[in-house]
Write a protein that binds this DNA or RNA. Structure first.
Lengths: 339, 339
DNA sequence: CAACGTCGTGTGAACGGTCACACGGCGCGG
DNA sequence: CCGCGCCGTGTGACCGTTCACACGACGTTG
């Protein structure tokens, strides 16, 4: 009976105006802090707003200004560490700038599913789009559907379309591979991510570049799926022929799985085989052995992607792609090549 | 010059109506598939819609119906495995039901920050709210701010407010502890999560209950922060006195860190000390040793929370809290107590 | 002292939909 | 043959805000 808010319409701008003894336009001006308004009037309006708990209606605003103040996020595997971390940063930056986010996750990357996700976002009249779905297919879809809003793609280095914001995957992979080579390894396997992921491809390129440059024998990478389980199974398979002394895994999870397989087969890491991962997930420092890996700053990526988008939204001129440098984190999963 | 869409206003419902030779109301009826409409008319309208690429304007709809079709999500630590997984499921379920999500993440759980997050969501006139921020404080804030929409809290078992949807944390903790006891352990440490997390508290309760029931000596749990690093440091500290033979960690990460410490100090897991975790993150199966842990189905939680909210939104009568059973996953980090 | 710019404020229309209601035509029962 | 109900469709109002423009008062300038 006390808090029985029986269909009491929320106060609108005219209610506030009436109570403050001004016109609705004046209230609107206060809301959008327009310069020419008498301080005393402003204060009076502000007081009333506070008093009645007035909240501007976002829908009405969006309707009349035709600006939704919404940024769409299209993510694949949003639950993974990297994307999730970036999304968090994106959300924070967007909120700070007065934008809201509309996130959608795609579980499969087939064309219809991308299309439907994009449709879903467009139907909310997003003003900009962030894509964290680093599959080649997604980019094709975006180009093809030619969405009419500024967009930025995360984690898509190498595929420079003028709208990307990513850690330099190629460089990261080179760092990892070079580290292995510097330790004297000449037989280096690469367990890659899925072929259609741009990140996976870029890391593979980096590996390949470094390996050929150092005139070390190139080996055909094996294509995984990012999971620890795959790393484990791949390890079991690979270790039947001990014709390598080091492994560069496409991410930390696969590295973990691989190490698991090593242990099960009595192969010592790093004694017999050295391993380096990619991402530096928070757990990597506590793997056994603590994993040498390549750190990417996902937060930075997220933050800067919104910055870029916002700039484009305001300024007009669209900013260029940016590449963020990754960092090799040396721990204990790499040793010199056994003789 | 080709795709130069110079400020061409998107087609609206009246444009479609004109082109189809009907009134705008008829188009509206087609959109909301109202029953009484001649099939031929409907088809004609549909064709035009397709042809001109008409998209109903969500803002206009929201304005007139005063239904935003938006569900708010308030998350703490959205980048963590559990929340991220739940959010993914929530997103999918919501989208399927024609709702969109507005997600906001809080990094600190002080009152102002919760309040501002809630404000942010309310200003978007969300129709319902999902809270994945299992701190006591958050609940108090919600109650106090008495948001006028149905809400559900995830991961808050034990704190039954009639709106929760969670895995039974107490049961999970009992399962874990009992498993240890059944293996003959009588000196069991518990590394808990932060005290103000409801989950942490519930797991501690479960541990305490089981331990007292089995008439095993109770030990004061140590309060951690969920991170692997904490588990590691705690391990280093704890292992100075080897007065326990088993550890129940509040989550898998802390278990990992603890095991890391063990290894560094030459303590064998599970030979000298048994360890069980909580969550069953995908990596847990590949830890060394593979971690015995308690699995919670985060996807199920997310899915069902939306189901509950949707029911309340449609039906009216609000559903009860639900508890989902966790599952003990036995791997290799637990052995019998050393004599 | 008239003309003019500036300040602070108000008025009408528009944004793109839905809702409530009205309306003509047609089949059917009394 | 008239009245009634139903089917399919149209008309006006309204949701809550901003935009374009107008307007009165006042101070300044020629």
């Amino acid at each position: 009976m006390s808090a029985e808010q029986e269909k009491v319409r929320a106060p609108n701008i005219r209610d506030v105006a009436r109570l403050a003894g001004v016109s609705y336009q004046t209230v609107s001006r206060v809301l959008n802090d327009s310069p020419s308004i008498k301080p005393s009037t402003r204060q009076r309006v502000l007081d009333i707003i506070q008093e009645v708990g007035y909240r501007p209606n976002a829908a009405a605003r969006a309707l009349v200004t035709s600006r939704s103040r919404t940024i769409g996020v299209l993510a694949a595997h949003m639950a993974h560490y990297g994307p999730a971390t970036s999304v968090t940063a994106i959300e924070e930056a967007a909120r700070e700038a007065g934008y809201r986010l509309s996130i959608t996750n795609i579980s499969t990357t087939d064309y219809p599913s991308i299309r439907s996700a994009l449709d879903y976002l467009m139907s909310q009249s997003i003003e900009a789009l962030v894509v964290i779905a680093p599959q080649v297919r997604v980019f094709d879809a975006i180009r093809e559907l030619s969405i009419g809003v500024p967009f930025v793609t995360l984690e898509s280095s190498g595929r420079d379309n003028g709208h990307s914001m990513s850690v330099d995957q190629v460089l990261g992979a080179r760092l990892a591979t070079r580290h292995l080579i510097e330790q004297g390894h000449t037989e280096i396997m690469h367990i890659s991510g899925p072929q259609d992921w741009i990140e996976a491809e870029a890391r593979m390129q980096g590996y390949l570049q470094e390996v050929t440059e150092a005139e070390v024998r190139t080996r055909a990478p094996i294509l995984g799926d990012w999971t620890a389980s795959f790393g484990y199974r791949a390890g079991l398979e690979l270790l039947r022929f001990r014709d390598f002394t080091a492994v560069f895994a496409g991410n930390d999870q696969m590295a973990l799985g691989f190490i698991h397989a090593c242990r099960e087969l009595g192969v010592d890491v790093p004694g017999d085989v050295s391993v380096v991962g990619f991402d530096d997930i928070p757990e990597a420092a506590h793997f056994f052995p603590p994993l040498t890996t390549v750190r990417q700053n996902f937060t930075e990526i997220g933050r800067r992607s919104i910055e870029l988008l916002l700039g484009e939204l305001r300024g007009g001129g669209h900013a260029d792609s940016q590449l963020i440098a990754p960092e090799l984190v040396v721990r204990q999963s790499v040793a010199g090549a056994p003789s």
